[in-house]
């Protein structure tokens, strides 16, 4: 089912983030949303994720959709290791071998059992991305997912996401044109 954004408006105090914003996102599309900082990219994703409410307008097509998200921040439990952080969202049904395998794919072999607080920023970022892709979903939201990654790891994670997310709807927000072009089948500028 397509996602239809109808005349969405959002204000923070006196600051109008966006006004009468409308967009149709076809099912299975990989959409890159580009905009400079402060133009409401994250707010748009938060509204889609149900973490913020719009002042006006509405969104259709999100009913019963499982949404996964890579936030701007890693949002991992610092005391838990990578396996447990992923299991926190996936539950015990997710086989440990599968999580080990995914972490190995993104170059985290050997770091699975360290508490998150002991890992580097780049490692945390990769774990946050794996978490979003391993748990079942219908819509994937990516908020500047590659920030803090070096070029090699950025390329590795882009390939990983593209490989894992072939058919599901994905919305990426970024200010990097290269990321937007590489990841998105469609690009939209706010």
């Amino acid at each position: 089912m397509d996602i239809v954004i109808n005349r969405l408006s959002k204000k923070y105090g006196e600051k109008q983030v966006f006004k009468d914003f409308s967009l149709r996102i076809k099912e299975g599309t990989s959409l890159s949303v580009m905009a400079p900082s402060g133009k409401g990219k994250t707010t748009l994703l938060k509204i889609l994720a149900g973490l913020e409410t719009a002042d006006e307008g509405y969104i259709e097509g999100l009913e019963n959709k499982k949404i996964n998200m890579v936030f701007q921040e890693d949002r991992l439990c610092p005391g838990l290791n990578a396996i447990d952080n992923i299991r926190l969202v996936c539950g015990k049904e997710m086989k440990e071998e599968r999580i080990y395998q995914e972490l190995e794919t993104v170059g985290l072999k050997g770091n699975e059992k360290y508490p998150i607080r002991d890992l580097s920023g780049g490692m945390k970022r990769r774990i946050a991305i794996v978490r979003a892709l391993i748990a079942p979903y219908d819509l994937l939201l990516l908020d500047e997912p590659f920030s803090g990654l070096d070029t090699d790891n950025k390329k590795k994670m882009i390939n990983y996401i593209k490989e894992k997310n072939e058919t599901k709807t994905m919305i990426l927000v970024t200010h990097d044109p290269w990321e937007a072009q590489t990841m998105g089948s469609h690009i939209f500028t706010l």
Binding site: A49, I67, M69, F71, E73, C77, D84, L88, V89, G91
Partner: peptide
């Protein structure tokens, strides 16, 4: 709050939220 938002988006059940996010 960021972890709680993450749990909300990822539909983490309440039992796990209490055990792994609130309790620590």
């Amino acid at each position: 709050k960021e972890l709680l938002e993450m749990a909300e988006v990822f539909r983490v059940p309440w039992g796990r939220r209490i055990r792994y996010i609130y309790l620590p």
